[in-house]
Amino acid sequence: MKQAAHFNRHSVLAIYWFEMSRFRRTLWQSLVTPVITTVLYFVVFGAAIGPRMGDIDGVSYGAFIVPGLIMLTVFTESLNNASFGIHMPKFTGTIYELLSAPVSAFEVVFAYVGAAATKSVLIGLIILATASLFTPIDIQYPMSMAIYLVLVAIAFSLAGFIIGIWARGFEELQFIPMLIVTPLTFLGGVFYSIDILPGLWRTLSLFNPIVYLVSGFRWSFHGSGDVSIGVSLAVLTGFLTACLAIVWWIFRTGYRLKS
């Protein structure tokens, strides 16, 4: 394609700000809901159950669950925002405008995923701020934490984008986030270290990719995790690459976008 090298910044910004304006319109729902949810988690797990749990790896239970809670929300928000963002134009029919615009597949993905990831990162940081009201939080590697947060948000936003294109209706849109990602997240060491599980369950947990993602993020907070940071980064990179490959294939074939 003659002009593939050209970057259409006006198109990208138009899509990005269009998506961000949806976030702004639903600001109350977008920001207050995760804050309330986090407060509830802290009331139940931090205040009610936490004192009976004792420290984990030298970290109070309240502080221990913070990275996992942030990841839980970032996974969910990234998937929901990105999938909804691209599914709505398909549902309402306005996708015609996107398909007929002089914009490349890369630019479309960049804009949608960028907007979804931005929202997730913002919400993640708000949860971090909310959590700090309940428990002292010491972040050992703040730069790593920030980079990791952004990468996870991008990876799950890409996955959400794929789900949004794949889904033929709102039921399918919720299928993977609700029935696969949420259970895997709860079993992925958000509220516990997999080291406390019996042998078989610990081994089974190692097949859950979420374990690696939560562990890597926790490492940036506490300097330790269920698995080594190298392995976590490898899983994250692999997940990102797989999502990128699927998105590339979707645009190359027009899968569920063009007839």
Partner: peptide, 24 residues
């Protein structure tokens, strides 16, 4: 196909169905 950016930039389309954003 080969030069889709230049081609599409020249075209405006009013579709048959009333496909519009609702909340903007």
């Amino acid at each position: 196909i080969e030069d889709y950016r230049a081609a599409r930039a020249m075209v405006g389309l009013v579709p048959q169905e009333l496909h519009t954003d609702m909340f903007e």
